[in-house]
Amino acid sequence: MSLVPFLSRRLIGLAVMLVALSALVFFFSRSIPGDVAAMYIGGMAKPEQIERARQELGLDQPLTLQYVKYMKKLLSGDLGISLRTHRPVFQDLLEKIPMSMEVVLWAIALAMVLGIGFGGLAALRQGTWIDEGIKWLSSAAVSIPIFFLALLLQLIFFNLLGWFPLQGRIDTFLEFSNPLELVTGFSLIDSLLTGNHAAFFNVAWHMVLPVLSLIAYPLGLITRLTRSSLLEVMSQDYILAARASGIRESVLFFRYGLRNALSPVLTVVGLSVALTLLATFYVEIIFNWPGIGYYALTAILSLDYPVLMGVTLMIGTVYVVANTSMDILRRIVDPRIK
C-alpha cells in the first residue's frame, strides 16, 4: 500500500479546497450589509474615528486586494485579528477548537462503537423485535432536530431527574478550588495529566448531556448503515462458501461479515465528524459550552469576518483530515480499495 502519493494527493486537494472555501467565505461575508469598521471601533464613535479604523484595517481598498492581502498573511499562519475581541484569531481558535473537538470526538467515538454494535446486533437478529426496535430508534435518532433533543435532555435529566447539570463546562467553585491548567486544551486530558481528579469528574459530568445530544445523529446513521451493509455482505457468495466449509456462524458474522461491511461505515464516520462539528454550534449555545460554536455564532452576529474565515477554514481542514484518516482506515480494512 503506497500511502505517500495518496497523502500528497489529499494534501493538494486540501489546499485547493481551502483556497476556494476562503474566497467564498471572504466575498460572501463582506457582501453582507453592515459597517465592519464601525463594528471594530465600537459604539459611540465619531465618524473620523471610524474612517481611521477603516484605513487601519485596509477596508478602504478594493475587495480583491484585501483578499490577496488576507491570503498572504494566511500563508504565514496569521489569521488576522478579531474585530470584536481584538485578539488574534489564531490564538482564539487554538483555545476553542480543543474544547469543541473534545465533545465531538467523544460523540463520534461512542457513535462508532455503539452504532457498529447495534447495527451488528440488528442484522444478527434480523426480523425480530430487537431488530425492529433498533431500526425504529435509529430512525428516530436521525430524524430528531439536535436543538430539540438538547432541550429535551435538559428538561428530563436536569429539570425532572436532576442527574446532570444544566449547562457549563465545570462547576464555578471548582474553577477556583481546582482550576484547570492548560496543557493540550482538551480539558479531560489536561485534568488527568495534572492529576486534577475533581475537575476531571466534574468536566465529564458536564459533558454527558452535550455528548448525548451530538451522538444521536451519527449513532442513528452508523447503526442503520452497519445493519444494511452487514445484511448485504451476509448474502454474498463468499459467506455462503465459508458457511458451506463449516465455519462457525459467530466467526462468519463478526470476523468475515463485519470486516467486509466496515468500509462504507467508515466513510460515513468521516462525514459525521464534520456534521457533528457543525451540530456543536447549537449544542454549545444551549449548554453554554465555551467552544468553537459559541465563538462562531457571536462572530456571525457581529460580522467579525476574520473569525468567520478562521472558523470556516478550520472546519474545512477538520473535514478533510477526518475523511483522509477514514480513507486510510478503509484501505487497511479492505485491500480492494486502490
Partner: peptide, 28 residues
C-alpha cells in the same frame, strides 16, 4: 440442527460454486 450440521460441512460434504472469485472472501 444447524449446529450439528457444521461438522459435515466442508469436512464430509464440500461444495464449490459458480463464480470462484466472488466465493473467496475479498478482505483476507
Amino acid at each position: 440442527s444447524n449446529a450439528a450440521m457444521r461438522p459435515f460441512r466442508g469436512r464430509r460434504i464440500a461444495m464449490i460454486f459458480q463464480n470462484p472469485q466472488s466465493s473467496i472472501n475479498p478482505v483476507f
